[in-house]
Amino acid sequence: SPEVQIAILTEQINNLNEHLRVHKKDHHSRRGLLKMVGKRRRLLAYLRNKDVARYREIVEKLG
Results as ranks from 00 to 15, higher is better:
residue 16 L to G: 01
residue 53 A to R: 10
residue 55 Y to G: 01
residue 35 K to C: 11
residue 32 G to N: 15
residue 37 V to R: 06
residue 1 S to A: 08
residue 20 L to H: 03
residue 23 H to G: 03
residue 46 Y to D: 13
residue 50 K to P: 01
residue 50 K to W: 09
residue 35 K to W: 12
residue 30 R to F: 10
residue 7 A to K: 07
residue 43 L to H: 01
residue 28 H to T: 11
residue 24 K to S: 12
residue 20 L to E: 01
residue 54 R to Q: 05
residue 22 V to W: 10
residue 25 K to N: 14
residue 16 L to Y: 06
residue 38 G to A: 14
residue 38 G to D: 12
residue 18 E to H: 09
residue 6 I to E: 01
residue 28 H to S: 14
residue 49 N to F: 11
residue 42 R to C: 11
residue 16 L to E: 02
residue 30 R to K: 08
residue 18 E to Y: 08
residue 11 E to A: 09
residue 15 N to T: 12
residue 59 V to L: 13
residue 42 R to P: 00
residue 56 R to P: 02
residue 63 G to H: 14
residue 15 N to H: 13
residue 29 S to H: 12
residue 14 N to Q: 08
residue 52 V to C: 13
residue 38 G to P: 00
residue 5 Q to P: 03
residue 4 V to S: 10
residue 32 G to T: 15
residue 49 N to H: 11
residue 49 N to S: 12
residue 63 G to M: 15
residue 58 I to W: 05
residue 19 H to R: 06
residue 25 K to W: 13
residue 20 L to Y: 04
residue 49 N to K: 14
residue 6 I to A: 01
residue 61 K to P: 01
residue 46 Y to C: 09
residue 42 R to F: 07
residue 50 K to A: 11
residue 26 D to F: 04
residue 23 H to C: 11
residue 28 H to Y: 08
residue 38 G to S: 13
residue 20 L to R: 02
residue 5 Q to H: 06
residue 5 Q to D: 07
residue 60 E to N: 09
residue 41 R to T: 07
residue 11 E to K: 08
residue 28 H to A: 14
residue 59 V to M: 14
residue 47 L to K: 00
residue 26 D to L: 04
residue 4 V to A: 13
residue 8 I to H: 09
residue 43 L to C: 03
residue 30 R to L: 13
residue 9 L to I: 05
residue 46 Y to Q: 12
residue 8 I to G: 03
residue 30 R to A: 07
residue 1 S to D: 12
residue 15 N to F: 13
residue 24 K to W: 10
residue 48 R to I: 04
residue 41 R to Y: 09
residue 62 L to Y: 06
residue 8 I to F: 12
residue 3 E to P: 03
residue 51 D to I: 04
residue 38 G to R: 15
residue 9 L to T: 01
residue 29 S to V: 12
residue 37 V to I: 14
residue 53 A to Q: 12
residue 2 P to V: 15
residue 19 H to I: 07
residue 53 A to D: 14
residue 28 H to N: 11
residue 5 Q to K: 06
residue 14 N to I: 09
residue 6 I to P: 00
residue 56 R to I: 13
residue 54 R to W: 04
residue 14 N to D: 06
residue 10 T to F: 03
residue 40 R to C: 07
residue 5 Q to V: 10
residue 8 I to T: 08
residue 18 E to G: 04
residue 49 N to W: 13
residue 51 D to M: 03
residue 36 M to S: 04
residue 60 E to M: 10
residue 45 A to V: 09
residue 27 H to D: 08
residue 16 L to T: 03
residue 42 R to L: 09
residue 36 M to Q: 02
residue 41 R to W: 11
residue 37 V to S: 02
residue 22 V to F: 10
residue 56 R to V: 08
residue 53 A to E: 15
residue 1 S to T: 09
residue 46 Y to W: 12
residue 57 E to Y: 05
residue 24 K to M: 08
residue 48 R to W: 09
residue 1 S to E: 08
residue 32 G to F: 14
residue 13 I to G: 01
residue 10 T to R: 01
residue 44 L to T: 00
residue 61 K to E: 07
residue 43 L to D: 00
residue 20 L to A: 02
residue 43 L to T: 00
residue 46 Y to G: 05
residue 18 E to N: 10
residue 63 G to Q: 13
residue 12 Q to V: 07
residue 58 I to A: 04
residue 21 R to C: 08
residue 59 V to F: 05
residue 20 L to T: 02
residue 44 L to D: 00
residue 17 N to P: 01
residue 29 S to I: 13
residue 17 N to C: 15
residue 45 A to G: 07
residue 25 K to C: 13
residue 23 H to D: 05
residue 12 Q to P: 01
residue 52 V to L: 14
residue 42 R to E: 09
residue 32 G to V: 15
residue 56 R to K: 11
residue 33 L to K: 02
residue 40 R to T: 02
residue 14 N to Y: 08
residue 47 L to F: 02
residue 41 R to N: 11
residue 10 T to V: 08
residue 37 V to D: 02
residue 15 N to P: 01
residue 7 A to R: 09
residue 45 A to W: 10
residue 7 A to E: 10
residue 58 I to Q: 03
residue 41 R to M: 09
residue 44 L to S: 00
residue 30 R to M: 11
residue 24 K to E: 08
residue 22 V to S: 12
residue 35 K to S: 09
residue 3 E to A: 07
residue 21 R to I: 06
residue 8 I to Y: 13
residue 7 A to Q: 10
residue 42 R to T: 06
residue 61 K to G: 08
residue 47 L to P: 00
residue 3 E to M: 05
residue 14 N to A: 07
residue 40 R to H: 02
residue 7 A to Y: 14
residue 62 L to S: 02
residue 9 L to Y: 03
residue 30 R to H: 12
residue 36 M to P: 00
residue 10 T to E: 03
residue 30 R to C: 14
residue 16 L to R: 03
residue 34 L to K: 10
residue 44 L to R: 00
residue 46 Y to T: 09
residue 27 H to I: 11
residue 54 R to N: 03
residue 8 I to A: 09
residue 39 K to D: 09
residue 23 H to T: 04
residue 41 R to S: 09
residue 19 H to F: 09
residue 10 T to C: 06
residue 3 E to L: 06
residue 5 Q to S: 06
residue 61 K to D: 04
residue 54 R to C: 06
residue 38 G to V: 14
residue 48 R to E: 04
residue 15 N to Q: 13
residue 27 H to K: 11
residue 17 N to S: 13
residue 56 R to N: 14
residue 34 L to T: 06
residue 8 I to V: 07
residue 59 V to T: 05
residue 31 R to A: 11
residue 20 L to P: 01
residue 21 R to S: 06
residue 23 H to K: 04
residue 19 H to L: 07
residue 22 V to G: 08
residue 9 L to C: 03
residue 32 G to W: 15
residue 29 S to K: 08
residue 15 N to L: 13
residue 52 V to S: 12
residue 33 L to A: 02
residue 23 H to R: 04
residue 34 L to M: 12
residue 11 E to T: 08
residue 7 A to L: 15
residue 58 I to V: 09
residue 12 Q to C: 13
residue 42 R to M: 09
residue 26 D to M: 04
